[in-house]
């Protein structure tokens, strides 16, 4: 069997290019992981020394040796819970309306839809400024935990709506039709058929949105999360601080030792985020398994 030499050369060259492309892609894939590993190990080495149960449960201090993290952890938890409680009903409700009840697709609902899509791409600092004007200046809520939570709600609401819509859309039409054909009302069809099937998607979306919110710093600086609070927030209108704010502050302190404290706080924040994300994964898996039955 003889091959035309020109053809063979062409083939070899194409195979070479193929190989090069593959290597480039591999490098790209590895680069991301390597950067992450370097970053994480640096943080880990810096932060692990300071990390202890005492550090987690102690009050804040501006003396690096003495400081704890508890008020920031509690503040973050409060903001997160409030944000969830406010954004989930509104977000899921809006999505159900847009997907299930909004059959006519009028100009108005199209405009709303377009706006939501655009809002999800707005930088978080803009939400901070909006929150400052709306909740602090106009509504007079002050630099309180509720103003922070409402601002965070604004921030994650578009994402919650969009993921919920996508999850609803993924439920086959036949489910709704089957239910309606058996004489159910639309609400019954949504409640008994659509929502349970869309739930894994919705839940995952919500948890991922919340874990984005927990790491946000910029909008909370603008709406006045404090740098030092002497005690834990007790009510909705109390001052508060959150993990990312303290990390930001400590990283900018003049004393080197605070940078280590910042690293420890990053570890705590990352454990929280990983825990939330794994809850999302587990819930999703369980629900999918259930839905298949």
């Amino acid at each position: 069997m003889t091959i035309d030499p020109a053809l063979a050369k062409n083939l070899a060259s194409r195979k070479r290019k193929d190989k090069i492309f593959q290597v480039v892609c591999q490098l790209a894939a590895i680069a991301g992981v390597i950067l992450l590993v370097i970053f994480l190990s640096k943080i880990f080495v810096d932060g692990i020394g300071k990390l202890s149960w005492k550090f987690i449960t102690d009050d804040l201090s501006n003396r690096a040796k003495r400081t704890g993290l508890w008020p920031a952890i509690v503040g973050s938890a409060y903001v997160m819970v409030l944000t969830t409680c406010i954004s989930v009903p509104i977000g899921v409700g809006a999505a159900i309306y847009l997907e299930e009840f909004n059959k006519k697709k009028t100009g108005l609902t199209n405009l709303i839809q377009l706006n939501i899509a655009n809002l999800s791409g707005v930088p978080s600092i803009v939400y901070g400024l909006l929150g400052r004007v709306l909740f602090i200046v106009v509504m007079g809520l002050g630099q309180s935990i509720i103003a922070g939570a409402l601002t965070m709600t604004l921030l994650i609401l578009p994402t919650v709506i969009i993921v919920t819509q996508e999850a609803l859309r993924a439920v086959p039409k036949s489910y709704r039709e089957g239910s309606l054909a058996l004489g159910s009302s639309q609400w019954q069809a949504i409640r008994r058929q659509v929502l349970p099937n869309a739930a894994p998607g919705i839940l995952t979306g919500i948890i991922l949105s919340i874990s984005r919110a927990i790491g946000e710093t910029a909008p909370l600086i603008v709406v006045g999360a404090a740098s030092y609070v002497s005690s834990l927030p007790k009510g909705l209108k109390d001052s508060y601080t959150v993990l990312p704010i303290k990390i930001f502050d400590w990283a900018n302190e003049s004393q080197e030792e605070f940078h280590k404290v910042a690293a420890s706080a990053i570890l705590v924040l990352m454990v929280c985020l990983l825990a939330m994300n794994s809850v999302a994964i587990v819930l999703r898996a369980k629900n999918q398994a259930n839905a298949k039955r």
Binding site: P196, N197, A199, L283, K286, N287, N290
Partner: peptide, 11 residues
Amino acid sequence: MSNTRTWVISG
């Protein structure tokens, strides 16, 4: 299906 719903809500 209601099983799933219970899951979601309880979750």
